[in-house]
């Protein structure tokens, strides 16, 4: 069961990360990319957590705590300074 769970979650997370990277690449706006990179960060955290749960170790636990604590700073910073006046309305 351990191997089955590992394979299933690895496939699912790989697909999810690929989709998030596609959204980062195609945009079309800066805020979409920020949002997609937030999701990508969540996927990395999920991979860390799954590794810890399946292999029964706690090496990454405090990395995970730090991610949840400061992971929002990047998107807040970008959203704070975004000013896109060249694009037209509804260009989402």
């Amino acid at each position: 069961m351990k191997d089955a769970v590992l394979i299933i979650t690895a496939v699912v997370l790989t697909l999810a990360a690929a989709g998030a990277i596609v959204r980062i690449a195609v945009g079309p706006s800066l805020l979409d990319r920020v949002l997609a990179s937030d999701v990508l960060l969540g996927i990395v955290g999920a991979a860390l957590a799954i590794d810890m749960a399946v292999n029964r170790h706690l090496n990454n636990l405090f990395l995970l705590v730090a991610l949840t604590l400061i992971g929002f700073i990047g998107s807040v910073t970008v959203a704070r300074f975004v000013s896109d006046r060249r694009g037209q309305a509804n260009d989402s």
Binding site: I8, T9, V12, A16, A20, V39, I43, A46, A49
Partner: peptide
């Protein structure tokens, strides 16, 4: 674990 991973896939979709 599987449900938690599926949440990420849901977000990507």
């Amino acid at each position: 674990l599987v449900l938690g991973a599926l949440m990420s896939l849901t977000a990507t979709i």
